[in-house]
Write a protein that binds this DNA or RNA. Structure first.
Length: 905
RNA sequence: GCGUGAUUAGCUCAGCGGUAGAGCACCACCUUGACAUGGUGGGGGUCACUGGUUCAAACCCAGUAUCACGCACCA
């Protein structure tokens, strides 16, 4: 075997070096002309100026595992990476910088200059997250990296806009939208999060016009919108107020008579049963307003301050200051009845984290295409969701789907491909609605600007970022104006798997499915794997503001990328959230106990391989494999099968645990220790050669299995141990999974016997170790055991002694020990531990009695089962047999123990 | 209000009809020639609760409680 290994594994250098070698050799590149079966994934594009967090780690590790496993299965793998321009997030970062450094707004710079600055920012920060993904070991085809603002990609956006407009699905209309007063743009419903807020419920009273001193009480949480009230509503069946419908009440300020209307929407039980109607600032109020022909008065400026309608007292005040002020005014007027603490849900802007202001505005809306196909694809199982329960959530959303507000009042993004004739522009843009049918020749909607561009004015708004991401699976693979499909698209679309978080099921997954059907005529992916959400020790989501989000780069630098990958996978069960634990010492240094487990595993593997290296090469023809070797090969065979099964169901945590358990608890704890017997100086060279060969076989196949989880470490060992076969691929990552059984070449009738014999010996070793520990002899390697064997041919004494830490195991059939000699019952026979000065009858009696009690308890349980006639007659035969075997085993044990106790007198 | 999960050892979590498991933490012993990022032995659980189905339930069903999350919302 090849090079010596250093005494400790240093992940950082190894990881960096291997990543570069893979890149240099083009290992990640997908060949669209290959005749291998295609396997493809598109990355959920991260924000171009974002940085890596644990969610990305989880998500991309899974994708990398899938991609690497598929390569090893012999598939042609495309993992297509890229980034997203993230309209609001990126624009606001640049605006923030402008404000801070130059005290300027984007309007001071103008659109063109501002966009130059955003591009600069993107150039500066855009590579960061990509490099972080590389640090993690992601095997993406970087030659195919895409960005949603790439020219070819952008062209796709315009094309689909035009398609949808021509189809009548895209229209411009004056509607109530979710307005973000901080980002100054409309948002889609999905970008609004409801949060419970501690606020106040104000009860105020309005005088009824034309009646003497009659008042009506109204409850509201938003007195600051009072100036926009153009009506008051009650339930039509509410007896208290029935006579008021049709009358008017006096709005306190600015004073005006506003009508009382009836509406089913009103809950008579809530508050006073009377609602103030502000059609410009509430969706429900807007509907009531439209039905009753109420005036719409917008009382806020776009940034959430009171406009001229507020009068001198309120104008210019922020929404929340205005709320207090309005309440004060009512109080002064004697019209505030009471003010109570109240908790209600308020919509917040997901990005800017400020309360949304419902607002009437002119926006572009989309009626979704291919809704039925998308719903059916998931319901019918053409697209598989894992875990499956998300199907229901998806179906529910699809059933209640609302038109999508796609325009954003931003500059960073894809500008809407609509031009208005200059002289008609104002009129067109103010129309209540505008669509393909009503627009006429004064509107140009096209991928290219009109020929006489100077006569036209382009719509200033840009499109929602998700309006570009929903094309990701195909727009990254082809140009929209090509005459025929690209070879990449032909080979790799539809993609195989999509790995993403359930939090973007609506934002992204659902919309991609619709887009896939609309423009490619088929589904965009076959399987969607929804990852866990990573939380902190207290179960909270990770977030910057909580400061509970550890930096994955720091984790990787201290413990290694492979360690983090392995640990995160081991901790993340299918479909459940995962807690990532960060402990801090008193100096504030962070430690990551879960990742340490992965680091320890890497070290364990490294050192076990190092041990193999230290044995050197065989210098004889190998003899027949020892029973220990057969046993470990059998376990490896099961491991390979179990791992393959777990991959079928995407149970990554199970795969990680299987690999861990095999290596640590089977290979290292038992096989490797047993094998040492064959490496002793006086060992038989043929036996040594055979054991070395088995070790190499296990090592080679284990490293192949582990590679997708710990790619760098395994590739390093592959090279250092020269595990590559003569005609094999250049790298482990390009090596095929073996197709032959690891048990090939071993006489199959030997396997069962070897496994049983080894399991008996290991169990006996356990008993012997326990005996030593009970008598405080754990450290004593001079102990001599005497075996009264089950089988007089027993010849595994040397291995037994090595494992049990004993000097000798003497075979004495029918051995009669001096009374009080410690003894253990084992599958290979009775094992005595006669040692001078150790005859302590009471101690031994105690020990045996404790064991006896355990055995009796077990016997009792199994007796109870077997004496139940129903069990014997109705349970499957093999279960009954199993219990009968257990019964006789425990019975024999109890009897023997009893006799041993009796012998002690 | 509707829906979806979770509740198993001190902690983080597997197991999902047939003998309760892992890692960490804990206790004792061990620097023995791969590994102290290690080894050996050990302690620790009425599997949230109440019913039901079954020969058999941590596991299936129904309900309850608590905690999350999603959707819809009462101004």
């Amino acid at each position: 075997m090849a090079e010596e290994l250093s005494s400790n594994y240093q992940p950082n250098e190894v990881e960096a070096a291997w990543y570069q070698r893979w890149l240099d050799a083009g290992c990640f590149h997908a060949d669209e002309h290959s005749d291998r079966e295609a396997y493809s994934i598109v990355i959920p594009p991260p924000n171009v100026t974002g940085i890596l967090h644990l969610g990305h780690v989880l998500n991309n590790t899974i994708q990398d595992i899938l991609a690497r496993r598929a390569r090893m299965e012999g598939k042609e793998v495309l993992w297509l990476p890229g980034t997203d321009h993230a309209g609001i997030a990126t624009q606001s970062k640049v605006e923030q910088k402008l404000r801070k450094e130059d005290k300027l707004t984007r309007h001071d710079l103008g659109r063109e200059k501002f966009l130059e600055q955003v591009w600069e920012w993107k150039e500066k920060h855009g590579g960061i997250i990509i490099n972080q993904l590389k640090r993690l070991g992601c095997s993406c085809d970087w030659e195919r990296e895409r960005f949603t603002m790439d020219p070819e990609y952008s062209k796709w956006i315009s094309k689909i806009f035009v398609d949808l407009f021509n189809e009548g699905l895209l229209y411009r209309g004056k509607r109530m939208v979710n307005w973000c007063p901080k980002s100054l743009t409309a948002l889609s419903d999905e970008e609004v999060i409801m949060k419970p807020q501690k606020s106040k419920l104000y009860t105020m009273r309005y005088r009824i016009a034309g009646e003497k001193d009659r008042w009506v009480e109204i409850a509201t949480t938003r007195p600051e919108t009072l100036m926009g009230d153009t009506g008051v509503a009650v339930h039509p069946d509410d007896k208290r107020y029935k006579d008021l419908v049709g009358k008017t009440v006096i709005r306190p300020f600015p004073e005006a008579e506003i009508p009382v209307v009836a509406s089913d929407h009103i809950d008579p039980e809530f508050g006073t049963g009377v609602l103030k109607v502000t059609p410009a600032h509430d969706k429900a109020d807007f509907d009531i307003g439209v039905k009753n022909g109420l005036e719409i008065i917008d009382v806020f400026t776009p940034d959430g301050k009171v406009n001229g309608h507020g009068g001198p007292d309120l104008e210019g005040l922020d929404r929340f200051e205005a709320r207090r002020k309005a309440a004060e005014k009512l109080e002064e007027m004697g019209q505030l009845v009471k003010e109570e603490d109240y908790e209600n849900n308020v919509g917040f802007s997901e990005r800017a984290d400020v309360p949304i202001e419902p607002r009437i505005s002119m926006q572009w809306f989309l009626k979704y295409p291919c809704k039925d196909e998308a719903a059916e694809a998931v319901a019918g199982g053409d697209i598989q969701f894992r875990p499956e329960r998300w199907k229901k959530t998806f179906a529910h959303w699809m059933e209640n789907i609302q038109d999508w507000c796609v325009s954003r009042q931003l500059w960073w993004g894809h500008q809407i491909p609509v031009w208005y004739k200059k002289d008609k522009s104002e009129e067109l843009q103010n129309r209540e609605s505008l669509d393909a049918e009503s627009a006429g020749a004064d509107l140009h909607v096209g991928v290219d600007p009109p020929e006489d561009a100077e006569n036209w004015e382009r719509d200033p708004d840009v499109l929602d970022t998700w309006f570009s991401s929903w094309l990701w699976p195909f727009a990254t693979m082809s140009d929209c104006d090509a005459d025929e499909k690209s070879d990449t698209l032909k080979k790799f679309y539809p993609t195989t798997d999509l790995v993403t978080g359930p939090d973007i099921l609506f934002f992204w997954v659902a919309r991609m499915i619709m887009a896939g059907y609309r423009w490619e005529g088929q589904l965009p992916f076959k399987n969607v794997f929804f990852t866990s959400i990573i939380r902190d020790k207290q179960g909270r989501k990770l977030s910057k503001s909580l400061g509970n989000s550890p930096d994955p780069l720091h984790v990787m630098d201290s413990l290694g990328a492979d360690a983090m990958r392995f640990s995160v996978m081991r901790a993340a069960p299918l479909g459940n959230d995962v807690r990532f634990i960060v402990d801090k010492d008193k100096d504030g240094n962070e430690s990551y106990p879960q990742v340490e487990e992965g680091r320890n595993f890497a070290t364990k593997i490294w050192n076990a391989v190092r041990f193999r290296q230290m044995q050197g090469e065989a210098d004889a023809q190998p003899g027949k494999p020892a029973i220990y070797a057969i046993d470990i090969l059998k376990k490896l065979d099961s491991l390979e099968k179990n791992v393959a099964n777990a991959y079928e169901d995407y149970r990554f945590n199970e795969i990680a645990s299987l690999l861990y358990e095999f290596w640590w608890n089977q290979y290292c704890d038992w096989f490797l220790e047993a094998a040492k017997q064959d490496f002793a100086e006086d060992a038989d060279p043929a036996a040594k050669a055979a054991t070395l060969a088995s070790m190499d076989r296990v090592l080679r196949r284990f490293v192949i299995l582990l590679h997708p989880f710990m790619p760098h470490l395994t590739e390093e060992l592959w090279e250092k141990c020269a595990l590559r076969e003569e005609d094999g691929a250049e790298f482990l990552m390009l090596t095929r999974l073996p197709s032959d059984s690891v048990l090939d070449g071993i006489e199959s009738d030997k396997i069962g016997g070897a496994v049983k014999a080894v399991s008996d010996i290991y169990e006996a070793v356990g008993r012997a170790r326990n005996l030593k520990a009970e008598y405080n002899l754990a450290a004593n390697r001079n102990v001599k055991f005497i075996l009264d064997p089950e089988d007089t041919d027993f010849s595994e004494g040397p291995v037994f002694c090595r494992l049990a830490g004993a000097k000798e195991l003497e075979l004495q059939p029918g051995f009669e020990a001096e009374s009080g000699v410690p003894v253990a019952l084992t599958p290979i026979g009775k094992i005595y531990m006669p040692l001078e000065g150790l005859i302590d009858k009471d101690a031994e009696k105690n020990r045996l009695t404790k064991e006896m009690e355990k055995a009796e308890a077990e016997l009792k349980k199994v007796n109870a089962k077997l004496s139940n006639e129903n069990f014997v007659s109705r349970a499957p035969e093999e279960v009954v047999q199993e219990n009968k075997d257990r019964q006789s085993e425990w019975k024999a044990k109890v009897e023997e123990l009893q006799q041993m106790i009796d012998n002690l007198g």
